[in-house]
Simulated scan of single mutants.
Amino acid sequence: MTKTKYLLYAFKQEVNGKTIYWYETDGKYFNQTKPPMHILEKNPEEVRSVDSAKIIENPWLEWKSNDIQKIVTEEGVCINYLKSADDEFITKQEDFKLLETYSYLVENFNISKAFGFDTIQQWHKMIFETIYPFAGMRRTVTMSKGNGNEAWEWRVEFLQGLPEFDSFLQEVSQKEYETVEDITLELAKLISDFLFIHPFREGNGRLSRLVCDIILAKNGLPMIGLKLKKGDNYIRRVHKGYECDYEPLKELLLSKIEEEIMRESE
């Protein structure tokens, strides 16, 4: 079993007229409101006894909210089907599902055709439907991430930009570009606009790089979305794109493409 900080729910029992729930990996209970039905799985076993010293508080905030996207930990980890509040563990599972989706699309997606935001929404569901209850749904909450210069807040009203983004995506996804400079400039704008709008509660970065790779492949260029490194200053470049300065992100995309072309020629 993979060790995590918390599991949301493994099984339950009645104690003095109250229902308590068990964190399987921690070997502890919590007594709190029953989790939403679509989060629960069947009880794997019965509990024989309870050590009251092991009863702990529920780590999830906004537990009673009707909006599933509001239920998070203090660290911002969203409620999930993995029953985990361990961000590192969840990230690894997201990466696995992303790779599976890449493999599926390589075999089954016709990149010669234009596509729009509806298609991205379908991909989001494919990647995250076994992880999050809001897979394939547009964001319903204001979000913030990062610290210092990398801090940013995405307000719900940013989603009003989706129709314009959809039109731009359809335009870019059907074009055939003559130069690498041309395609990297438009991809820099596309990625920046998508991440500024931040249409999903989770997975926006992964989806933006998947879209980028498909458009690169359509134009006979190597895919680069899974090859970003910490030293690339990716977030800083994206934030420049939020200010309509797409050159820093364009330079990064161009350098990654050139690296791949050089590697393939060796």
Rank of each mutant, 00 (worst) to 15 (best):
residue 214 I to N: 04
residue 188 A to P: 04
residue 79 I to W: 07
residue 228 L to A: 09
residue 263 R to E: 09
residue 88 E to S: 11
residue 192 S to K: 10
residue 93 Q to D: 07
residue 22 W to R: 06
residue 103 S to M: 13
residue 119 T to K: 12
residue 6 Y to H: 10
residue 128 F to V: 01
residue 213 D to N: 15
residue 249 L to W: 06
residue 6 Y to T: 09
residue 116 G to N: 12
residue 111 I to A: 12
residue 159 L to R: 09
residue 261 I to F: 03
residue 78 C to V: 02
residue 256 K to R: 15
residue 236 R to T: 12
residue 103 S to V: 11
residue 63 W to E: 07
residue 29 Y to E: 03
residue 257 I to Q: 07
residue 111 I to S: 14
residue 106 V to L: 08
residue 175 K to Q: 07
residue 223 M to V: 15
residue 75 E to K: 14
residue 198 H to V: 03
residue 244 C to I: 06
residue 235 I to E: 13
residue 145 K to C: 03
residue 165 F to L: 11
residue 86 D to M: 08
residue 232 D to R: 13
residue 117 F to K: 05
residue 191 I to H: 02
residue 254 L to F: 08
residue 254 L to H: 13
residue 105 L to P: 01
residue 243 E to C: 05
residue 101 T to Q: 00
residue 98 L to D: 10
residue 15 V to C: 00
residue 247 E to K: 15
residue 202 E to M: 03
residue 235 I to A: 13
residue 87 D to T: 05
residue 224 I to C: 03
residue 92 K to I: 07
residue 159 L to P: 05
residue 254 L to S: 11
residue 180 V to Y: 08
residue 168 F to Y: 15
residue 245 D to C: 10
residue 169 L to M: 12
residue 88 E to M: 06
residue 166 D to G: 05
residue 152 W to Y: 14
residue 137 M to S: 09
residue 95 D to M: 15
residue 234 Y to N: 14
residue 118 D to F: 07
residue 188 A to S: 14
